[in-house]
């Protein structure tokens, strides 16, 4: 137990970052799953969410708890606003989603520089925030509580009308044209939830670290970790689906323990929970928690490997972009094969 606490203590920062990225990954996964492409607006949402969250916090700094909460609400609202802008570009100006996202990303960077011309917004180290009162595992528990709440809210919404309409976005172009009651409204809903969560993640990050940098490529790290976790969890999910589909109930199974009804039932139960075997509305909670867990693991991995530390200066951006492109292309191929 002590070893575990020591581990948590040593890796508190990457675990916390992983958890916040997990929150953003839940949002990003909605666009990956239901709009078939990651929304690049999120790159701007995480930066602008952080800057606006910090800006609001500085304005209300005399009340740390209220300032932290209002800062987070501000970050979420900025994300929602950016999602609406991307939706406007996509549906009114008819720009493809990927390009609309990139345009909004550039616009949000300009807005961030407008608020913080120096390229960063920093809190005084002595300033108290909501995180000052929580150290070690407590802050992780709060982050986990936020993730579980977000996952539960999504799970609840997915059982209802809007959730069904969001899942229906995975259908063919013909379905969207002929049968979907409101594809434009549903796209807007997905983009606003996605960017709202990412903006909230940006604000939480900035307030926790007392720093909202615009430069430095944090948004690229976010995209890399979040996308990576989405594809890793989908890979695990598809493996579970394959195991679940395998003929576990036949007596011809070479592994004798699998033929025992209780073991068989247990495997099917576990695999069913972690795979998309049933209606997607029932699996969104597990999926959301899975993305968050994968985010923490990937963040820990990147911290251990620190893969860009040995690269020559100024190559970090190029290296991160190259890794994102590789993750994106491998993930897209994997999804199309599935």
């Amino acid at each position: 137990m002590n070893d575990f606490l020591t581990f948590l203590g040593n890796y508190e920062r990457p675990i916390n970052h992983g958890l916040y990225y997990g929150l953003a990954a839940i949002g990003l996964s909605l666009t990956v799953r239901y709009l078939k492409t990651p929304d690049f607006t999120t790159l701007g949402s995480i930066v602008l969410g952080g800057v606006v969250g910090t800006f609001i916090f500085l304005e209300l700094a005399s009340h740390p708890i209220i300032a932290s909460i209002v800062g987070c609400v501000g970050g979420f609202s900025v994300g929602v606003l950016l999602g609406i802008v991307t939706h406007f570009l996509k549906h009114m100006v008819r720009i493809p989603l990927a390009y609309a996202g990139i345009l909004t990303y550039f616009a949000s960077m300009s807005a961030a520089y407008f608020i913080a011309p120096d390229g960063y917004l920093e809190l005084d180290r002595r300033t108290k925030t909501i995180f000052t009162y929580m150290t070690g595992p407590e802050s992780m528990i709060v982050a986990m509580a936020i993730i579980v709440t977000a996952s539960w809210l999504l799970h609840r919404e997915f059982k209802r009308k809007n959730g069904k309409l969001i899942i229906a976005m995975t259908s063919s172009e013909a379905f969207l044209k002929l049968r979907h009651p409101c594809p434009a409204k549903t796209t807007r809903l997905i983009l606003t939830i996605c960017n709202g969560l990412v903006g909230l993640c940006g604000a939480l990050f900035a307030i926790r670290d007392s720093d909202a940098p615009i430069k430095g490529g944090n948004e690229m790290t976010f995209l890399l970790v979040s996308l990576g976790s989405i594809y890793v969890f989908e890979f695990i999910s598809s493996l579970f689906l394959k195991i679940s589909d395998a003929s576990l109930d036949t007596s011809e199974n070479p592994i004798s323990i699998l033929n025992k009804p209780a073991v068989n039932h247990l495997i099917r139960l576990v695999c069913g929970k972690f795979s998309s075997k049933n209606d997607e509305s029932k699996g969104i909670f597990v999926a959301a928690c899975g993305y968050a867990t994968c985010c923490v693991l990937l963040q820990l991995l990147f911290t251990g490997v620190s893969f860009i530390a040995w690269l020559p200066a100024h190559f970090e951006y190029a290296a991160t972009v190259a890794v994102i492109v590789i993750v994106l292309s491998c993930g897209t191929r994997f999804r199309s094969k599935c």
């Binding site: 009308k161 069904k164 309409l165 995975t170 063919s172 013909a174 379905f175 049968r179 009651p181 209606d279």
Partner: peptide, 25 residues
């Protein structure tokens, strides 16, 4: 009923949810 059943049905939803979507339409 269209030629391509994917123009009418959502494969990622259950039978009940598919009926629900059609009713929403």
């Amino acid at each position: 009923v269209h030629q391509d059943e994917n123009a009418d049905l959502v494969p990622h939803l259950s039978l009940a949810a598919n009926i629900y979507i059609r009713k929403l339409q």
